[in-house]
Simulated scan of single mutants.
Amino acid sequence: MFPSGLTAAPRDHGQAHVPEVIEAIPTGAREQLTLLPAKLDRTLESAGWGGADGVNLIRFFTGVERDQDPEWFGGHAPTSTSAEDARLATDARLRIEIQAVVVRGEV
């Protein structure tokens, strides 16, 4: 499974990325980061999977030195890549986006 494009934007923000719909996004990276584990967990759980199935996490930051995220994956630490972008496409208020590679069974 390859969940991608996970941000602090509301789940139903649509592809139009209408700024008025996204105004509730917290501006701080820590606050945004608190929303991402639950979004990823919901995605994985909808397929009957969990965080322990994660093998790779790709994180896109607008300020990588300032905004590194806490570990979640339930003590399981997948490999990860961090990259810095000047701006995330959905909205300028977003500070982090994640993509995961999740595999069921032994790798």
Results as ranks from 00 to 15, higher is better:
R66V: 07
T90I: 11
Q99V: 11
A83Y: 12
R59H: 08
T81H: 09
G48V: 04
E97V: 03
T7L: 00
F73Y: 11
D91W: 05
G63V: 05
G50N: 11
Q32N: 05
D69Q: 11
E45D: 06
S4D: 15
W49D: 05
R11H: 12
V18A: 08
V107I: 10
T27M: 12
A16H: 14
Q99D: 15
V102M: 03
L35G: 03
E71M: 08
A9P: 00
A89H: 13
L6Y: 06
A89M: 11
V107P: 06
S80T: 02
A86P: 07
F73Q: 02
R59F: 11
W72A: 05
R66N: 05
T7K: 00
V64P: 03
A77P: 03
T81W: 13
R59Q: 07
E20K: 07
A24I: 10
R95F: 03
Q68D: 08
I25K: 00
P19R: 01
Q99F: 15
A77K: 09
A24G: 11
G51L: 05
R42S: 12
D12K: 15
P3W: 03
A29S: 05
W72D: 12
V64D: 07
V103P: 00
D53R: 01
I96M: 09
T43D: 15
A100M: 09
R42F: 09
G50Y: 04
G63H: 13
T7Q: 00
T7A: 04
Q32H: 07
G63S: 13
L57S: 00
L36A: 02
R93M: 01
F60D: 04
V103Q: 03
E31S: 13
D69L: 09
T62R: 00
W72C: 02
S4A: 14
D41R: 04
E31Y: 07
R30Y: 14
P3N: 06
W72I: 01
D53V: 01
E45F: 13
A89W: 15
